[in-house]
Computed example of a mutant assay.
Amino acid sequence: MHVLYSTSPDQIPALTSDDLRRRFLVEDLFADDQVRAVYSHGDRVVLAGAAPVNGPLSLPTFPELRADHFFERREGGIINVGGPGSVTVDGESYALAHGSCLYVGRGAQDLEFASDGTDPARYYIFSAPAHTTFPTTLVEAGAGTVRELGDQSTSNRRTLNQYIHENGVRSCQIVMGVTTLHSGSMWNTMPAHTHDRRMEAYLYFDLPEEARVVHLMGEPTETRHLIVGNQQAVISPSWSIHSGVGSASYSFVWAMAGENQSFDDMDHVAITELR
């Protein structure tokens, strides 16, 4: 498990591109037959990737968590960004197709990730501390609360699926879903916004191997960019915008944790105000 410490916004102007990438971009979350994880001191979230290829993988109890098992004091959302597979939670198996979401409640002890067939599954796990327990729940791809956003004329036509949220699958603090850009649209989350009460992480996927997303981050008056590839994640502190434009259409998992679960509690920033 790699540990990332908090960064103050007044440090951003002095950081190089490599500095930004080390602090906010997770480039190598997925590796065949491994479970890799990053612990962020921003709201103490964990981002993890499980890539079972030659056999099932168990979720480790990382020593940095000081716990008897991963979900002893945590909850998590799991989204499959690869081929079909299944996740077994304390003996109960859940089939996860591409884009499906599994919420795992606090107290779950044994998790195992498996692939079905020759196209391996890739499981993205977003976890946050939890102080109460909600039941483990599966949501099939596209079966959450659906919002149609943007317009083709502004290149940001997109379908947003809310899976874990206050009016859907219940959690202690996680809010999570998937947004898919329509063909010919490249912009996400524009106009941009911040939300001081929640951090957020984006995992970009279904992006062609030769394509990239230019992800915008930073305070609205001091923006910077990260060049992001397929199945790479960006950690966005509460003070930072999180928006991007791709060289091709793509999808991304968005996941938030903090003191409130109101999806629309955000401070919008017009593009004319960005610097």
Results as ranks from 00 to 15, higher is better:
residue 8 S to H: 12
residue 180 T to F: 03
residue 81 V to H: 07
residue 205 F to W: 08
residue 21 R to E: 15
residue 199 M to Y: 03
residue 31 A to C: 03
residue 169 V to M: 13
residue 101 C to Y: 12
residue 4 L to K: 13
residue 73 R to F: 13
residue 3 V to H: 15
residue 63 P to C: 02
residue 141 A to P: 00
residue 15 L to F: 15
residue 25 L to Y: 07
residue 138 L to A: 09
residue 185 S to V: 02
residue 208 P to F: 04
residue 247 S to F: 08
residue 231 Q to Y: 02
residue 26 V to H: 08
residue 260 N to C: 09
residue 199 M to P: 01
residue 38 V to S: 11
residue 4 L to H: 02
residue 126 F to C: 04
residue 209 E to G: 00
residue 71 F to L: 10
residue 136 T to E: 13
residue 12 I to M: 15
residue 12 I to D: 00
residue 232 Q to M: 12
residue 207 L to I: 10
residue 129 P to Y: 12
residue 238 S to K: 05
residue 121 A to M: 09
residue 209 E to M: 09
residue 151 D to F: 06
residue 65 L to R: 01
residue 246 G to C: 09
residue 81 V to Q: 09
residue 201 A to C: 14
residue 234 V to W: 07
residue 52 P to Y: 03
residue 11 Q to N: 03
residue 259 E to Y: 08
residue 200 E to S: 02
residue 164 I to Y: 01
residue 154 T to H: 11
residue 166 E to A: 15
residue 41 H to L: 15
residue 190 M to W: 11
residue 178 V to P: 08
residue 151 D to K: 13
residue 131 H to P: 00
residue 212 R to M: 05
residue 212 R to D: 05
residue 84 P to S: 08
residue 233 A to E: 07
residue 14 A to F: 14
residue 197 R to T: 08
residue 216 L to E: 01
residue 110 D to L: 03
residue 232 Q to S: 01
residue 89 V to G: 04
residue 225 H to L: 10
residue 218 G to N: 11
residue 88 T to D: 07
residue 2 H to I: 15
residue 120 P to K: 04
residue 145 T to D: 09
residue 59 L to A: 05
residue 58 S to T: 13
residue 202 Y to Q: 02
residue 141 A to T: 02
residue 6 S to I: 06
residue 45 V to C: 12
residue 156 N to Y: 05
residue 240 S to E: 05
residue 41 H to S: 06
residue 256 M to A: 04
residue 53 V to G: 05
residue 249 S to N: 11
residue 36 R to C: 11
residue 35 V to G: 10
residue 47 L to M: 13
residue 106 R to V: 10
residue 38 V to I: 11
residue 260 N to I: 12
residue 157 R to F: 15
residue 205 F to I: 06
residue 7 T to I: 14
residue 202 Y to M: 05
residue 55 G to F: 09
residue 163 Y to E: 09
residue 129 P to C: 10
residue 239 W to H: 09
residue 48 A to L: 09
